[in-house]
Design a protein around this nucleic acid. Structure first.
Lengths: 343, 343
DNA sequence: GTTTTTTATGCAATCGATTGCTTTTACACG
DNA sequence: CGTGTAAAAGCAATCGATTGCATAAAAAAC
């Protein structure tokens, strides 16, 4: 009726009883006369009483909300991760507050402040591309807020975390390309201080070394994310005196754009250049040739992180749990040189 | 130091003054002796005092949080829209709580309840595929919660809304296909009770009629979203006695998958079948042939919705504002039959 | 019919801020 | 020295719930 929602006090006043009795009746507490309880419940239903969550939050010192900081909502990997987080959190009765740092360390800092001020019960964080320090996370530990870092974790912090086997999968992928007869494998990767980029690069390097292939700096492209000029990168690679015979890209979007440019230049994939992506976007099955990629299970990473956080909130894990989820190599046509050459 | 954060009371006790003075000093209120204020501010900084947002929320009866309900976080369109929402909201000092209905009306209902219980200051809603009623939104109006529906709005509700010119753009797109010489235009669309699907279908129909083309029910596919079997749909179309010479798909993902299957069957795009998508995914520029599509400005829709909501929260608009954002037709290769035939 | 026990309810503090009103303090002026 | 006034600080209510403790009412025991 009025603008303000009905409160426990309203019900008490109407029924001529005290707030406490109403509260106890609603929370099925015991020690309330059956008749009174019924009256309260009936009126509550009639007035569509809904407890004020804020008052509860204040009293109980928790918000049933978890905060999430990701680099970019639009990034399909993070979108899927958030979806996994939401599913797990909602199931457990938690709400999810999502902030994007837009790959900026300063925004990340301000997101964090805001989420802490909101008194979220826990935090799920994947750091921005720019973030190469960790002191802005100090407040989390000072205030003992449960936290799980996922995917892009902070190497210097000993916290709960969920990652994938970046090193191993990059090693495996590179090894596979070598077995396909590739000898000049280019890679486009993120900044070295990012956990994922670093480990993937390391896996790539070690696979080269193990196969007695020399690392050629010409074949290493450092991706600047949004500012990337993939076309220029690709041209640069193709125009090298010794152009690469394989490209291991940071993600499927870049891989597909590169394929497009390579094909326009009249080169054949995978015969001239094999292309391998990362993330397994739904679309990658349908480009030509179908893109080989790494299945990076974003949804599972998100869900696992949320579950880890929730158990931490419940006070279950006293030592930071570190969980690894396995990615897997998905071979399609864009790297199957042996088959292609056999044709 | 201790687990619990420092409060205004702690500061008051340490300095031997009252809570009110501390509060006034912190809020620069006036009527506080300069010396006292300095002492308070200094101690607050030293103890890293952060006001308890929950207490403030309770007192001020607002949360500085807006709630968002979308069908799917993973859907690129909604991911972009949420990104726009976040940007606009954060700029204005608001946090964003995102829920996904997973295209289920019941989940949508439960999301809504949860957000109302959290006492969000306003709601941004894009309804689920399943939602063909609106009574679960009643609580919003009873409680007079500011709300903006966007993209997938609820036809039966007279609320603020942000949509695109679905009808016009579908009409224009179909008209364009006809001008390209297409006479048997198939379309794959969502359920009729969805605002977007309905209007797009209507635009498609009216364009056919205007050009004296008969509507052929064989050419209409109703998409079931996640459960879709695009391959079967496409085969069905191709295997018709009179297969279509154009397909206007609900979104780029479906369009690209269809292109893939059409090409595998040895048909040429756009010569045999022209393919038109919707949404303008980044990837669509790079498939072969490059996909013509409708640029549906998700980010802008999100940002505009958030801004509309914020002005409503400020109490600026007393009548529901309805805003339309223009989509635009993006012609690439997958529909350029005149050029293709000219070749 | 009184005492004891059980059952049901109410009072008031609490969570952490804000804020209207009162009170104290200090200072100026007649 | 008394009084008026302004400046500074404190008291207590408020927001909407929960909950320990006190108390009232009803039921049981003697």
């Amino acid at each position: 009726m009025n603008n303000h929602s009905v409160t426990i006090k309203d019900i008490a006043k109407i029924l001529g009883i005290s707030k406490s009795t109403v509260s106890r009746a609603l929370s099925e507490h015991s020690d309330v006369h059956a008749e009174t309880r019924e009256k309260v419940l009936a009126l509550a239903r009639k007035l569509q009483y809904q407890p004020n969550a804020i008052a509860l939050n204040l009293k109980q010192q928790r918000t049933n909300t978890i905060g999430v900081i990701i680099p970019e909502t639009e990034n399909p990997f993070f979108a899927r991760a958030v979806s996994g987080i939401q599913r797990a959190a909602n199931q457990a009765g938690y709400n999810v507050m999502v902030c994007q740092s837009s790959e900026s360390c300063r925004t990340e800092e301000s997101n964090l402040k805001s989420l802490i001020a909101t008194r979220v019960d826990g935090l799920l964080i994947s750091i921005s591309r720019e973030t190469d320090k960790s002191d802005h996370f100090d407040a989390i530990f000072q205030k003992k807020i449960p936290v799980v870092f996922f995917d892009r974790i902070c190497k210097t912090l000993d916290t709960a975390q969920v990652t994938t086997n970046n090193y191993e999968i990059a090693f495996e992928a590179t090894q596979y390309l070598i077995r396909q007869g590739c000898r000049r494998i280019a890679t486009i990767t993120g900044p070295r201080h990012l956990y994922t980029s670093f480990n993937r690069f390391q896996g790539y390097m070690d696979a080269l070394t193990k196969n007695n292939l020399e690392f050629n700096p010409d074949y290493l492209l450092l991706s600047d994310f949004s500012k990337d000029n993939i076309e220029a990168y690709t041209r640069h690679l193709i125009d090298l005196k010794e152009p690469p015979d394989a490209i291991f890209a940071k993600n499927d979007l870049i891989a597909i754009e590169m394929m497009h440019i390579i094909k326009k230049r009249g080169l054949s994939i995978p015969r001239d250049i094999a292309v391998l992506g990362f993330n397994n976007e739904p679309i990658s099955r349908f480009v030509e040739p179908a893109l080989s990629t790494v299945d990076h299970p974003a949804h599972d990473i998100g869900a696992a992180s949320a579950e880890l956080l929730l158990s931490q909130i419940k006070g279950e894990n006293h030592h930071p749990v570190k969980k690894t989820i396995k990615s897997s190599l998905l071979i399609r046509e864009s790297t199957e040189r042996l088959v292609a050459i056999g044709n």
